[in-house]
């Protein structure tokens, strides 16, 4: 006869199965409410993660994802040996680096200065106005670029001519691509990106400012010694998130701004994946490029996060 294990039946130690059953009977309604979200993430995010294996295969439609021939790292080697590899890599990196260089500090400066505006109505109007460009689509932004920068009828070239200069055909000049890309990004999103910083600034206890005023601090000193230290944790968080995207690309915008003239700077990895993969049907090759980028981004974000934590500042996780 087997020994019974009475302690398992005590109230404090229910059998594992009973424990799960008890949790389900208590929490099942929460699980039901979470079900749609989980189904979405599993079907549209985790299924593709399973499909990533085609990066190591020679994908053929008839064979399917798991039936196609295994080729190991061939697709990755092909990409690294490709004629355009260096150009794609440096274009993507430079575009994101310059974008971070300008796009990271500007919202912080805007938030601090907006917070210093005394006139309540003007402040409110300004805040509303600088968010507006965020709601304009990428297609329209690109359209506005083509309209305003047109060498024959654009406003910008009209002004250049009026000032005595010669018109520039901005959209086919490779040297202008990055500047235009970053300027429009800032025009569109810098205002919007102040939200996080403004939220932190309005949460600062007014008594701290009062104490500083009594001690004779001027506005510049209040910004330097109160505002900025309060914003550091958010800066770190935003920086970590941005650092994780150094090789990713805003494919939709670059695709719209790409012309035959500016290819030498506008050819970035995301656009290459779209044209070679979706349009050209080279699924395995481009899936490998995508995976290459994702892995680098993943390690970037982990390492920047690690450094931030070591330095004693905030970290994401």
């Amino acid at each position: 006869m087997k020994l019974k294990m009475p302690e398992l039946n005590l109230p404090g130690h229910p059998k594992p199965l009973t424990r799960i059953a008890r949790c389900v009977s208590r929490d099942w309604q929460i699980y039901v409410l979470l079900l749609p979200v989980l189904i979405y993430f599993i079907v549209f995010h985790y299924f593709p993660m399973y499909g990533v294996q085609i990066a190591f295969r020679k994908y053929r439609f008839v064979d399917g994802i798991s039936g196609s021939q295994w080729v190991g790292l061939k697709n990755f080697k092909d990409f690294m040996g490709a004629y355009y590899f260096g150009r794609l890599l440096s274009n993507t990196l430079l575009l994101n680096l310059y974008g971070l260089l300008w796009g990271f500090p500007i919202p912080i400066i805007l938030a601090i200065l907006l917070n210093q505006l005394d006139r309540a109505r003007f402040k409110k109007f300004t805040q509303t106005a600088i968010y507006v460009p965020h709601f304009i689509s990428t297609a329209v932004i690109a359209g506005m670029l083509y309209l305003f920068l047109s060498p024959s009828s654009g406003v910008v070239n009209y002004m250049i001519k009026a000032l005595g200069g010669t018109p520039i055909n901005f959209m086919i000049e490779a040297s202008w691509f990055r500047s235009l890309y970053i300027i429009t990004d800032i025009w569109q999103h810098a205002g919007w990106n102040t939200i996080l910083y403004l939220a932190a600034l309005t949460a600062i206890d007014p008594e701290i400012y009062e104490a500083a005023t009594i001690d004779g601090a001027n506005k510049r000193q209040k910004i330097l010694y109160i505002d900025i230290p309060y914003l550091v944790p958010i800066m770190v968080m935003v920086f970590i998130l941005n650092a994780g995207g150094l090789l990713s690309s805003n494919t939709d915008k670059a695709l719209l701004m790409q012309t035959s003239g500016n290819m030498s700077t506008s050819d970035i990895i995301g656009v290459y994946v779209y044209t070679m993969g979706i349009q050209g049907g080279q699924f395995s090759y481009t899936a490998a490029i995508g995976l290459f980028v994702n892995i680098i981004n993943f390690f970037m974000i982990i390492s920047v996060n690690w450094v931030a934590r070591r330095l004693g500042e905030t970290s994401l996780f």
């Binding site: 299924f47 593709p48 499909g51 085609i54 699924f283 995508g290 995976l291």
Partner: peptide, 9 residues
């Protein structure tokens, strides 16, 4: 997963 696996999915 990236654009291509999402597309195939």
């Amino acid at each position: 997963g990236g654009l291509i696996p999402i597309f195939l999915n």
